[in-house]
């Protein structure tokens, strides 16, 4: 029995290690490749670089204008994700009595926003943003992102709020608190894990989104990180080392944030993902 248990544990670790390697090895190779010069890619495909080309990082940082695009990415993602999540929580609170037909309709209405292909709306969106005079500012990205973040937020938060005990808000009502106060001081705090998963899911998506800022970020100063990286990948030549260096630079912030907060990350995700 003891032996069987030991074997079981051994097999378990073997399986998990193998799976982890499948994840880590490709990522590690991109980091290695980002230090290679072009001839190195052919001379020695999977080995370490013959000489470490730090130059790749210097060029990538400078030519892909990462200091500007990084700042933009941070501002856009932080603003859009917080506003969007707050609005989604408001909506979900409003919809939490799902038995009402109107609320049920609105729930379906919001959630079906998940299905809209972005190529379909990009041109009308552009025209609209121009009417509002938002083009050329970061709001040209923030406003659509807020709207596009709502479906997922509503999808995750509505069922969570619906499962909260009714007494919770009733207690507030007896104390004479307004509905808004109840929402802000009672509902929001207990909703924290769900909010975290919405912030993470939408935040990762907004940070990585490429096509929308490509078209909507009209001025060079308003471009985000992925667009800066891709505009760096020239039409006529392929400097692989530089490209991989820029991919590493663009990805590092999220990965570091993820590793630092991985417990909250995954806990937040599991909170919302299953119900609904």
């Amino acid at each position: 029995m003891k032996l069987r248990r030991a074997v079981e544990v051994g097999v378990r670790h073997f399986v998990l290690c193998a799976a982890s390697l499948v994840v880590l090895v490709p990522i590690a190779y991109v980091v290695i490749a980002s230090f290679k010069t072009i001839p190195d890619f052919f001379a020695n495909p999977y080995g370490l670089p013959e000489e470490w080309a730090w130059q790749n990082y210097v060029s990538a940082w400078r030519d892909a204008r990462i200091s500007i695009t990084l700042t933009n990415s941070i501002i856009v993602t932080a603003t859009a994700v917080s506003v969007s999540t707050f609005l989604a929580a408001l909506i979900s609170y409003g919809l939490s009595r799902r038995e009402r037909p109107l609320a049920m309709f609105l729930y379906t209405f919001f959630v079906s926003g998940l299905l809209i292909p972005v190529q379909m709306i990009i041109l009308p969106l552009f025209v609209l943003l121009r009417q509002f005079g938002l083009l050329g500012t970061l709001f040209a990205l923030i406003c659509p992102y807020i709207a596009m973040g709502l479906p997922l937020g509503v999808l995750i938060l509505t069922p969570l709020i619906a499962t909260l005990p009714r007494d919770l808000s009733d207690a507030g009502r007896i104390d004479g608190a307004s509905e808004l106060q109840i929402f802000l001081h009672i509902i929001l705090p207990v909703l924290r894990p769900g909010l975290a998963s919405v912030v993470i899911l939408n935040g990762v998506w907004m940070w990585n989104e490429f096509f929308i800022p490509l078209v909507l970020a009209l001025k060079a100063d308003t471009q985000t990180l992925p667009v800066g990286i891709m505009s760096f990948v020239g039409t006529y030549n392929t400097e692989w080392g530089l490209i991989f260096a820029s991919v590493v630079i663009a990805t590092a912030p999220v990965v570091i944030a993820y590793i630092l907060m991985s417990r909250q990350f995954v806990a937040g995700l599991t909170a919302g993902a299953v119900k609904g």
Partner: peptide, 19 residues
């Protein structure tokens, strides 16, 4: 400067929208 794959969607959209 931007690669062609980025240039066409941006330029065409900007033209139609007057930007």
């Amino acid at each position: 400067e931007m690669p062609s794959s980025a240039y066409v969607p941006r330029m065409n959209t900007a033209l139609v929208a007057g930007e």
